[in-house]
Amino acid sequence: MKRGLMIASALALCTAGCGGGASGTAAAAPVPAPTPAPAPSPSPTPTPTPIASYTPAAAAIPTAGIALPLGKCVNMGNHLEAPNEGDWGRAIAEDDFTIIKAAGFTSIRLPVRFSGHAAMAAPFTIDAAFMTRVRHVVDLATAAGLNVIIDMHNYDELMAAPDANAVRFAGLWKQIAATFAAAPATVWFELINEPNTNLTNAKLPAIIAPALAEIRATNPTRPVIIGGEGWSGIGSLATLPMPADPNVVPTFHYYDPFAFTHQGATWVTPTPPLGRVFGGAADIAEIDRNLQTVRDYIARTGRVPFVGEYGANDVAGVPVSERINYYGTITAAYASVGVQSCAWAYTNTFRLRDGDHWIPGMLAAIHTTTTLR
């Protein structure tokens, strides 16, 4: 568990937006708790330390495989990866993607709980109405001019028992791939969100190879994204297995420092207390170490990863200014080494948008690389 913190929902719900830190161990999932506990009393707030400055650079160029032209990206968090759309906040609206595009975003990541809407027996048929809804959402996003990552999210059973679910996993991807075979080249597939528990890096090749083969049967060159063990923490890059496929792209997630990003998160046990500020010397030193990890990965493998999730809790008691500092610093830091990132999340959790307006200052804080490729 992440720094000694038990994540109640990781095993019980495997809810949205799990993240990993420098150690690659588990982080928590930003989703409303089933029975919300009272928010903890704020601790005394220390005087904030000035935030370090990072300068975005051109996108890193891979020497092996491809890099995605992600640009500014936002996760559609707690929408289609909930047990049912609307369970964890409002449903996706018809105009959401024109709003997102107008705000300067280039891409969206769409977490989807396909496994919760499919038969358990072969051929593991995905509910037709649910697949139609996913396709409609993807069509809305592409029509708005956005790149779309279709991400298989919250497949709890696969994490607990990878071997027992491998055939079903491949069967689900066979259907998803066929459904989107004629989609624009700006639609990308992410095999599985945040491998954890028993789905380790050592286990990944045997589990993902059949699923990738099913995708390639109908989508021979479509980009496919793979993240590693321990909730795809940055430490997972050390042993992340990559198939011999030039159109596979690595990803990792970033929620460090956890005591800041998940303060007041009632789905974490014990709940990290409010009052943690961001930007002290230890925080910046941690970022710098992690940037070196990414540089080393690019130099060693020739592949360019992207940050598929990052963010900070928007619970009452966390000043918006602190969240702005975090989103700005993290995005600029990774952009300074040519790596792009995707914020968690749009409007339901770790929000960038509140009701009918963007939270003031949040959009301006988010950086990306100075080029897309």
Rank of each mutant, 00 (worst) to 15 (best):
I150M: 00
D151P: 01
A166V: 05
A166K: 04
L146G: 00
A170H: 06
N147M: 04
N165G: 05
Y155D: 15
N154M: 15
A178R: 11
F169S: 09
G145R: 00
I150A: 01
T186Y: 01
N165Y: 07
T179G: 11
T179A: 14
A160P: 04
D151H: 09
N165F: 06
E157W: 09
Q175V: 11
P184G: 05
N147T: 02
K174H: 11
D151C: 08
K174G: 13
A181G: 09
N165V: 04
A183E: 11
A160S: 08
L172Y: 15
N154L: 15
F180Q: 12
F180N: 11
M152F: 12
A170Q: 04
V167K: 01
G145P: 00
N147W: 05
A160Y: 07
I176A: 14
P184Q: 03
L172H: 13
L172F: 15
A178L: 14
G145D: 00
A166H: 01
A166M: 05
F169M: 07
D163I: 05
K174Y: 08
W173V: 12
I150G: 00
N165I: 07
A185M: 06
A182G: 12
R168Q: 12
A178Y: 09
F169Q: 08
A161R: 04
A178N: 13
A164T: 03
A183T: 11
Q175H: 12
N165T: 06
A178H: 11
A185S: 09
D151W: 05
E157G: 06
A185K: 08
V167E: 03
L146R: 01
D163K: 03
D156M: 14
A185N: 08
A164N: 04
H153E: 07
E157Y: 10
Y155V: 15
W173N: 12
H153A: 07
A178M: 10
A177P: 09
I149Y: 06
A170E: 08
V148M: 01
A183L: 06
Q175F: 07
M159V: 07
A161D: 09
P184I: 02
N154K: 15
A177L: 10
T179F: 13
A166G: 04
V148Y: 00
A183C: 09
D156F: 14
I176Q: 08
A160D: 08
L172K: 11
I149L: 10
T186P: 05
L158D: 13
I176H: 12
P162F: 08
